[in-house]
Simulated assay, not measured.
Amino acid sequence: AFLLHLQPQLDAGGRLIGAEALLRWNREGHGPTPPALFIPIAEQAGLMPALGREAMALACEELARWVALPGADGLVMAVNVSAAQLYEPGFVEEVLALLARTGAPAERLKLELTESLLLTDIERAIEAMTRLREMGIRFSIDDFGTGYSSLGYLQRLPLDELKIDRAFVRDLPANASSLAIVRTIMALADTLRIRVVAEGVETSAQHACLLDNGCDAFQGFLFARPEAVESFRARMSATDALHGSGAQPRGGADRDR
């Protein structure tokens, strides 16, 4: 059985703005297994579309529950979409049917796509994204800056967000090349009028550097590791009190992914 875990995303003011949906394989006798162990097996077996459908279904069911929960107003659920899933016939219809079945609000669902995925068939990707965007669904490019691709396609996509890859965040603020790349991504996003999320933020120094350079939102172990949905719901209900108390993200790196 697969379990849904959620990793919180926070804005520049430290307020909870949503979460990324992550699957954990609950192996009998072994407990939850992280994606790094079961995703390669799923890819080799051609099971990524099925795995993607499972993640999307669990995420939408949870998102629908948020509608009635205190502290969840406006929070967005981010879900990763694989190339095999996006280019499956009927993907758009499947997503819309799932939203209708679960009652999850489309405007609070964000699909995360990688650069390499989009460039597989850019015209087909644009068509699918545009149809879903018309229903209110948001889009983010995950691992941005690692695709070595032309930037010309960006202006054609209905994007809401660029997500800075952890490879660039990891060496901040000391690495001049990483800092230059981060600043370039910030400037590009500003021109396109879309937000920037940094993932893999593990230290206070990284966080401060990203803040100084205008990053909009953050995700990483500095703030929280992926957690069970029950823990995330408790976090939602306590968000206002924690923010009002002036509580800060915990410091120190945590590499137990």
Rank of each mutant, 00 (worst) to 15 (best):
D121N: 08
Q9H: 15
A64M: 08
G246Q: 07
I185R: 00
L10M: 15
A238H: 07
S150V: 02
T114G: 07
A217S: 15
F139M: 02
D254P: 01
R225I: 02
A125S: 07
R250E: 14
I137P: 01
A208C: 07
A228M: 11
L210H: 00
Y148A: 13
Q44S: 13
G152Y: 08
S178L: 00
V79L: 11
E123M: 01
R257M: 15
L192R: 01
F221G: 11
C209Y: 04
T239I: 04
E43Y: 09
D121Y: 03
A55T: 12
S245W: 03
G29I: 04
T184H: 00
E161D: 12
G90K: 08
L113R: 02
L159F: 00
L75M: 12
S204N: 10
P226Q: 12
D143H: 13
V81T: 07
G14E: 11
R131N: 06
L132S: 09
S82D: 07
L159V: 06
A55K: 13
D165V: 06
R65V: 08
A55C: 14
G103S: 01
L6R: 06
M236F: 02
V92W: 10
L210T: 04
P173R: 03
A59Y: 00
F232A: 00
W66C: 08
T33Q: 14
G14I: 09
D212Y: 00
Q155N: 06
L69D: 01
R108P: 03
H5F: 14
Q248V: 14
L47G: 06
E161T: 04
A198E: 05
D190L: 09
L188N: 06
L151M: 14
A36W: 10
P158D: 06
